[in-house]
Deep mutational scan, measured.
Amino acid sequence: MTYRVRIENADGEVVTIEISADELREKGLTLEELLPPNARIVEVEEVEP
């Protein structure tokens, strides 16, 4: 499974990243732990691999 994640950074700019569930598991991280300081998740969407 892959996630498309929209993130708002500290400057108010919204960027989109895609990350797979396998990648998260391998790194032992959650989506929140990948965020840079002062950023927030705006939207998470599951996409087909």
Rank of each mutant, 00 (worst) to 15 (best):
D11E: 10
N38M: 06
L29N: 05
E43K: 10
A39I: 13
Y3A: 00
N38H: 11
T2C: 08
S20T: 11
V42M: 09
G12K: 05
R6A: 06
I7H: 02
Y3V: 04
S20I: 04
P49G: 13
I17G: 00
E33S: 09
E26C: 06
P49Y: 14
L24P: 01
P49I: 14
V15W: 15
E45D: 05
S20V: 04
I7Q: 00
E8S: 06
E13G: 11
V14C: 02
V42Y: 04
E43R: 06
E48A: 14
L29R: 07
T30P: 08
D11K: 10
R40E: 05
K27F: 06
T2F: 15
E8F: 06
I7N: 00
T2A: 10
T30M: 06
E48H: 15
R40P: 02
I17L: 13
P36N: 03
L35H: 01
L35A: 04
L34A: 13
V15Y: 15
E8Y: 07
G28Q: 08
I41W: 05
R6Y: 09
G12M: 04
E33H: 05
L24W: 04
L34G: 03
D11I: 07
N38W: 09
V47S: 05
R40Q: 12
A10S: 12
I7S: 01
L24V: 06
E8Q: 12
R4A: 03
E18K: 05
A21S: 11
L29E: 03
L35Y: 02
A10L: 12
R4P: 00
E43Y: 12
E45Y: 11
K27H: 07
S20R: 10
E8L: 12
D22S: 12
E8I: 13
T30R: 09
L31C: 03
K27G: 08
A39S: 15
E13P: 02
L34I: 12
A10I: 12
P36A: 05
R6M: 10
T2I: 15
A21F: 10
L35E: 00
I7F: 15
R25L: 11
E32V: 10
E18A: 06
E32M: 11
A21Y: 10
D22G: 08
I19G: 00
E46M: 15
E23A: 08
R6F: 10
D11A: 10
L29F: 07
E45R: 07
E48G: 14
V14N: 07
E23Q: 05
I19A: 02
V14E: 11
R25P: 01
A21R: 08
P36M: 04
T30L: 06
R6T: 15
R25M: 12
E18F: 15
V15R: 09
V42L: 15
I7T: 03
D11H: 09
T2P: 01
E48S: 13
N38L: 06
E45K: 11
V42Q: 05
T16R: 04
P37A: 11
L24I: 08
V14T: 10
P37F: 09
E32K: 10
N9L: 15
A39Q: 05
P49A: 14
L24A: 02
D11L: 09
E23S: 07
N9Y: 15
R25G: 06
T30V: 05
E18D: 11
D22M: 12
G28M: 06
R6P: 00
L35V: 12
K27I: 06
P36D: 06
E48V: 14
E18C: 06
L29H: 05
P37M: 07
M1K: 14
L29V: 13
E33K: 06
M1D: 03
E33Q: 12
P37V: 07
T16F: 08
V44Q: 02
T30G: 04
L35S: 01
R25C: 07
P49L: 14
V5L: 08
T30Y: 04
E43M: 11
E26F: 10
S20E: 06
L31H: 00
V5C: 05
L31P: 01
M1N: 07
V47D: 03
E33D: 15
E32L: 10
N9T: 15
P49C: 11
V5D: 00
P49R: 10
V42W: 06
I19D: 00
E45I: 15
E43N: 10
R6I: 13
A21Q: 11
V42F: 05
T2E: 03
P37T: 07
E43W: 15
L31T: 00
L29C: 11
V47N: 04
E18M: 14
E8G: 02
V47K: 04
N9R: 14
E8D: 03
T2D: 05
A10N: 09
L24Y: 03
D22I: 11
E13T: 14
I19L: 04
A21N: 07
R4M: 05
Y3G: 00
N38G: 15
E23L: 11
R25Y: 11
E33L: 05
E18W: 15
G28H: 09
V14D: 04
V5F: 04
E23H: 08
L35G: 01
I17Q: 02
D11V: 09
E26D: 13
E33F: 06
E23G: 03
E45A: 04
V5G: 00
G28L: 05
K27D: 03
I17R: 02
K27A: 11
G12H: 05
V5E: 00
